[in-house]
């Protein structure tokens, strides 16, 4: 697949259809890929990688780049990334006409942390051949079944469908019945004190690195409220444990109704905090209150939380939730 993608992209470079491509670049380790800009076909042929570790969602990088006037930018999007792309398009954050999308097929991505946890830290290289992951370590070659080391977010994959693309590699996928709200339900069924203690345990590990915010394709504000002295939240971080308690909750509120559930926040978290569960709780609530809604499904449907419908003058469209625990 990687060589086919490179071949086609080189063609596009040569025909001057595109002036740059955003993709995954070889890192220090072959399981550690970097989202990167390729400015020439030579660079791409040499350093572009598409494999089971090409997890990064590249859509957010388009915000700045699509404002460049010099020509089209090519971007590789997996199915879940296309939802983020649509969401950004809907919020006028990117210019569609400056972008050429190659949809790349996605089987489940692998989680290097899980592999290391199972087989030890001294990993030299990892590769996956269908169902088996082969890992070279200092202690020799080891293998593990792929199903044991799949990224959490891919285990609850919501869709294999590319909702937007110019060109698609592989077959058109389908929306899946992901059962992604099962974990939310477990949390909902906890007693309040259990749930509080769950989140305290998780959130207390936060080191305030902002990786979740910086990677999030819904967090695209020109100036983030947490960096804004006038917002009234920025200066509270130093005075108490506010950040730890509230940062993630405020962030979840800010992306509520806009989060596509791409799962990047949890993937990049160095402390493995399951941040996506906060967002998923919002998605579940929104679905229950206002009917099913998938952010990024298309660019026409307005999000339930930012929709003013003329027919709901009063009474309001808010429904009561059934089976409130």
């Amino acid at each position: 697949m990687q060589s086919e993608i490179i071949k086609r992209t080189v063609e596009l470079f040569n025909s001057e259809e595109i002036v740059r491509a955003i993709g995954w670049r070889k890192g220090d380790f072959d399981y550690d890929l970097n989202p990167s800009i390729f400015k020439s076909s030579e660079d791409l042929e040499k350093n572009f990688v598409y494999n089971d570790f090409s997890s990064a969602n590249l859509s957010k990088f388009l915000i700045k780049i699509s404002q460049k006037e010099d020509g089209k930018t090519l971007v590789f999007l997996k199915s879940c990334d296309t939802y983020s792309f649509n969401s950004l398009l809907q919020e006028h954050r990117i210019s569609r006409d400056k972008i050429y999308i190659i949809g790349v097929p996605c089987e489940e991505n692998l989680d290097p942390s899980k592999i290391k946890a199972a087989l030890g830290e001294d990993v030299l290289s990892m590769s996956c051949d269908g169902e088996t992951v082969t890992v070279e370590t200092l202690d020799g070659t080891k293998t593990i079944s792929k199903s044991e080391v799949i990224l959490d977010r891919c285990l609850a994959c919501k869709s294999r469908k590319h909702v937007v693309y110019d060109e698609l590699f592989g077959e058109e996928g389908e929306v899946l019945d992901s059962k992604r709200f099962d974990q939310v339900e477990i949390l909902e069924n906890m007693k309040p004190e259990e749930r509080y203690s769950f989140w305290r345990t998780e959130l207390s590990r936060c080191i305030g690195c902002n990786a979740c915010r910086d990677i999030c394709p819904a967090c695209t504000c020109e100036k983030c409220v947490f960096d804004n002295r006038d917002s009234g939240v920025e200066n509270k971080v130093a005075t108490n444990d506010f950040e730890e308690n509230m940062f993630h909750i405020i962030r979840a509120f800010h992306v509520a109704g806009r989060c596509t559930d791409c799962g990047e926040c949890s993937r990049v978290c160095p402390e493995d905090i399951p941040l996506h569960l906060l967002n998923r709780k919002f998605i579940k609530d929104i679905n229950e209150f206002y009917g099913n809604y998938q952010a990024g499904d298309d660019i026409e449907t307005l999000a339930p939380l930012t929709r003013f419908d003329a027919v709901d003058v009063e009474p309001s469209i808010v429904k009561t939730r059934e089976n409130v625990k």
């Binding site: 809907q90 919020e91 006028h92 954050r93 695209t220 504000c221 020109e222 100036k223 804004n228 307005l302 930012t306 929709r307 003013f308």
Partner: peptide
């Protein structure tokens, strides 16, 4: 204006 993203949320909800 320096903070506005132009995302359209405000216009969508403005009655």
């Amino acid at each position: 204006e320096n903070m506005c993203n132009g995302c359209g949320a405000c216009a969508n909800v403005c009655p």
